[in-house]
Design a binder for these strands. Structure first.
Length: 217
DNA sequence: CACCAGGCAAGTA
DNA sequence: TACTTGCATGGT
């Protein structure tokens, strides 16, 4: 079976079992971008607390957040963990927004993906997954988001192997699937939902998984 | 108690 | 270049 057919079959199986995902959580593009940085190696529940702290103070705004003393920002995002380094990462991102978009993230939607993505990746603290999450979910650009669940699930189903890095696995999807923001959006969302509920590091949950059991290891 | 969660950069050899 | 380590809270 061609990779494209397999990937589309997996997508349909997950969608049929779970229905629409309505991702990414967040009321504005800026909130989505902040969430993408705060959720690095962190449970989303912890991120929600940090976002709530910012929102209740009217700080889910790029210029307002950048004007906040770093120590105060750190205290507000503390529940999300790694709060010192994430303060730096947020401020690096905010500096970029100030410089390139006058603190209005939506203006970045006009940039072509091929030039915007390297610029976002150049921000210290924004790696490939965070960059693609911001580009896809906040800026609606057609880039596929790969995460730990993607590696695990595609690996178990024989479409990824150990020597594959982020870029290689991203290319598996983008070479096989049509360039479609809505498809990339929903596909990643479904992978995370299935990953959270079935595809654990150690789990015998595969029998009930929408993708069925994997035949390996 | 140990382990994990929607990573990334810096340090080491 | 290829590994390893630091970063930190909160839930299971």
């Amino acid at each position: 079976m061609r990779t494209a057919d397999t990937l589309l079959a997996m997508f349909e199986a997950m969608r049929a079992a779970l229905g629409p995902s309505d991702w990414w959580p967040g009321e504005t593009p800026f909130e989505i971008a902040v969430g993408a940085i705060l959720t690095q190696n962190t449970n989303w529940g912890n991120v929600e607390k940090a976002i709530g702290n910012l929102k209740s103070r009217g700080l889910l705004d790029a210029e307002a957040m950048y004007g906040l003393p770093p120590s105060e920002l750190a205290e507000l995002i503390r529940p999300a963990g790694y709060y010192n380094i994430k303060t730096k990462r947020l401020r690096n991102f905010l500096a970029f927004l100030g410089e390139e978009a006058d603190f209005d993230i939506t203006t970045l939607r006009e940039w072509p993906l091929h030039s915007l993505r390297p610029r976002v990746l150049g921000i210290s603290g924004i790696g490939p997954e965070t960059a693609d999450a911001i580009l896809l979910y906040a800026l609606e650009q057609p880039t596929f988001v790969v995460d730990a669940y993607t590696f695990r699930m595609l690996g178990r189903h024989g479409l990824a192997d150990e020597d594959m890095d982020y870029h290689a696995l991203r290319a598996v999807f983008m070479d096989a699937l049509p360039e479609d923001v809505a498809l990339y959006n929903e596909y990643h969302a479904l992978l995370v939902r299935v990953g959270k509920d079935w595809c654990k590091k150690k789990a015998g949950l595969c029998e009930s998984c929408p993708l069925g059991p994997f035949l390996d290891t």
